[in-house]
Simulated assay, not measured.
Amino acid sequence: MSAISGLGAGNTTANNNTIAPNGATSAEGLSTMFLDLLVAQISHQNPLDPMDGTQYVSQLAEFANVESLQSLKIDSGKNLELQASQQALQATALIGKQVDVAADTILLEQAAPVKGAVNLGVEAQSVTVRLYNAQGQLMEQQELPFTGVGTLRFAFEQQEAGGYYVQADANINGKPQPLTTLLSGEVERVSVGSNKDDIILQVNGLGNHALLDTNQLAFGGNS
């Protein structure tokens, strides 16, 4: 009975070693498990009909592949976690910076300019940007200087506190085409969403936006 108890205790220790800190079976644990199974297989084989040695070699080769894949999976998981941590750390450096986000409405808590940009994928004869207040009244209209395909920035000077709507369109081959507007705002805080890779920027007057949806740092840096 004592021999059986000792064997059971040894197996418990071996099994505990097969679990990695992240809950997955570690490569070292797989190796121990395989060797235990291989020893048990050899010990209990039929001496009148022993296994062919090539079968052991085949099993070792298959195990080596499994062990390599498991190690690769664990290393990849660690690298992804490290990248996510570094990305979150870099995102905190955006606090206090001006960024461009895809938006067409902005809420000014106090008097301030309304700035942003539009991206042109093809050449246009002209680009027009209009600023409306919350009541739909046209406050200002600008014809942007055209330099070809690329980013054109605009700025409506000091506006009173309140809500505003920005609309832009390009005249392409004689036809008006609506453009997606990017509005500029200061990053007030950075948080991580339900997914560790989901980093959210709270932009003043523009709400919450995913870091990956942030177009670029707005010209001018700090506000």
Results as ranks from 00 to 15, higher is better:
198 D>V: 08
190 V>H: 09
178 P>H: 00
183 L>D: 00
133 N>L: 11
183 L>N: 01
200 I>W: 04
190 V>G: 04
193 G>C: 04
141 Q>T: 13
178 P>M: 05
168 A>Y: 01
167 Q>I: 12
138 L>W: 08
196 K>S: 15
164 Y>Q: 05
185 G>L: 04
168 A>E: 03
130 R>I: 09
163 G>W: 13
182 L>D: 03
125 Q>H: 10
190 V>T: 06
200 I>M: 14
185 G>D: 03
137 Q>L: 12
165 Y>A: 08
188 E>M: 11
123 E>T: 14
188 E>K: 01
137 Q>I: 11
180 T>W: 10
155 A>S: 15
130 R>D: 09
186 E>P: 00
154 F>G: 02
183 L>G: 00
154 F>E: 02
194 S>P: 00
169 D>M: 02
176 P>E: 04
142 Q>N: 02
169 D>L: 05
149 V>M: 10
152 L>P: 02
193 G>I: 06
161 A>P: 03
143 E>Y: 09
165 Y>V: 13
186 E>C: 08
165 Y>P: 00
175 K>R: 13
142 Q>H: 07
149 V>A: 06
183 L>S: 04
128 T>E: 12
177 Q>N: 11
197 D>A: 15
127 V>H: 02
159 Q>L: 07
202 Q>L: 14
121 G>W: 13
151 T>V: 15
162 G>F: 01
170 A>I: 06
158 Q>W: 08
196 K>H: 10
138 L>Y: 10
182 L>M: 14
131 L>T: 07
159 Q>G: 03
147 T>Q: 08
121 G>E: 14
145 P>N: 10
153 R>N: 12
125 Q>C: 02
195 N>G: 11
130 R>C: 07
183 L>Y: 04
194 S>I: 13
190 V>I: 15
130 R>H: 12
183 L>V: 08
164 Y>D: 02
164 Y>R: 00
202 Q>N: 13
132 Y>T: 03
148 G>Y: 07
127 V>W: 04
144 L>T: 09
170 A>R: 00
131 L>S: 05
144 L>H: 02
153 R>L: 11
166 V>S: 01
174 G>N: 08
143 E>Q: 14
164 Y>I: 08
165 Y>Q: 09
123 E>W: 08
166 V>M: 01
126 S>Q: 13
136 G>Y: 03
155 A>V: 08
181 T>V: 15
121 G>L: 11
127 V>M: 04
151 T>S: 14
182 L>G: 02
147 T>S: 14
193 G>W: 03
177 Q>A: 13
155 A>G: 03
137 Q>A: 14
133 N>Y: 08
147 T>N: 10
135 Q>I: 07
122 V>A: 15
123 E>V: 13
190 V>A: 06
157 E>C: 05
200 I>T: 09
